[in-house]
C-alpha cells in the first residue's frame, strides 16, 4: 500500500463519526466578520495607508505624474545609488530623470550580480490601508520576485486611489492566486531578539513608498 493510500485510509477511519449529511462548506463557516473596519472616504483610506506604512518604518512620499521622475531621481541620489534595477514593464517616464545606470533583470542574471545593484523601482498590484501593506504580483511593472528582494533599497510606486483597498478581504478579492504574490509591510524586520521588533535583516532595509495621484 502506498503512503498516500495509507494516510487517506487513516483519515477516513479517524473521521468515522462524521456523517455524510454534514453542513456543506458554504453553510459551515459564518462570514459575519467585517469586510472593512470603519467607514472612511477615499482620501481618508489613502491617509490611513500612509500612516500605517510609516508606522512600520516605510518612508512615504506623495507625488503626481509630472513630479514623479524628479522625486525618483532625488530618492536614488539621496541613497547614493550607482545602479538601479527596473522591471521590464515599468513606465519609462518614471525613470526619465534618474541618473543611475538602469539594470534590466534578465533570466540569466545571477543573484550575485543583482546583489551589486543598489536600488530597485517597482509598481505594485494592490495596497492595503488597514495593515500598511503593498502586494506585488509579478506583473511587468513589478518584475520577478527576486528583484524587490536582493537590492537594499526598494522604491514602490502605488497609484492612488485606484490601487488602494481598505482591508485584507478586499485585497484578496483583487488578487490572482495563480500569480506569485509577495506581501510587504514595511522593511525587513525581526522580533527574534527578546521579542522586540528591529528593522533590517535580509530584505531591503529601506522601503520607500510613493503614493502617485
Amino acid at each position: 500500500m502506498s503512503s498516500r493510500e495509507r494516510i487517506l485510509g487513516r483519515v477516513r477511519r479517524a473521521l468515522a463519526d462524521v456523517t455524510p449529511d454534514e453542513r456543506p462548506y458554504a453553510e459551515a463557516v459564518p462570514r459575519d466578520y467585517l469586510r472593512e473596519h470603519g467607514a472612511r472616504t477615499t482620501e481618508q483610506t489613502v491617509e490611513l495607508l500612509a500612516g500605517n506604512l510609516a508606522d512600520y518604518r516605510a518612508i512615504v512620499h506623495r507625488s503626481d505624474a509630472e513630479e514623479l521622475p524628479y522625486l525618483v531621481m532625488r530618492l536614488l541620489n539621496q541613497h547614493g545609488s550607482q545602479e538601479v534595477l527596473v522591471p521590464p514593464g515599468l513606465p519609462p517616464e518614471w525613470m526619465s530623470a534618474a541618473d543611475p545606470v538602469r539594470i534590466h533583470d534578465r533570466a540569466v542574471s545571477t543573484a550575485q550580480r543583482l546583489d551589486q545593484v543598489d536600488s530597485v523601482v517597482t509598481g505594485c498590484a494592490v495596497a492595503i490601508a488597514e495593515t500598511g501593506t503593498i502586494v506585488l504580483d509579478g506583473s511587468p511593472d513589478q518584475g520577478r520576485r527576486r528583484i524587490s528582494l536582493i537590492p537594499d533599497h526598494h522604491i514602490c510606486v502605488v497609484r492612488v486611489p485606484d490601487q488602494v483597498v481598505s482591508s485584507v478581504p478586499q485585497a484578496l478579492e483583487r488578487l490572482d492566486p495563480a500569480r506569485p504574490l509577495t506581501w510587504i509591510s514595511g522593511p525587513s524586520a525581526t522580533s527574534d531578539i527578546e521579542l522586540d521588533r528591529v528593522e533590517g535583516v535580509h530584505g531591503p532595509r529601506t522601503l520607500e513608498v510613493v503614493l502617485l495621484s
Binding site: 500605517n52 512600520y56 533570466a107 492595503i128 488597514e130 495593515t131 500598511g132 501593506t133 509579478g138 520577478r144 520576485r145 527576486r146 485584507v168 492566486p177 495563480a178 500569480r179 506569485p180 504574490l181 509577495t182 506581501w183 510587504i184 509591510s185 514595511g186 522593511p187 525587513s188 524586520a189 521588533r197 530584505g203
Partner: peptide, 19 residues
C-alpha cells in the same frame, strides 16, 4: 502583535521565469 508581518509569500506550483 503586528497588523501585518513584514513579508508574506504565496506561490502556486511553479511560475515560468520566476522562482
Amino acid at each position: 502583535a503586528e497588523r501585518m508581518n513584514p513579508y508574506t509569500s504565496m506561490w502556486t506550483g511553479t511560475t515560468d521565469g520566476d522562482g
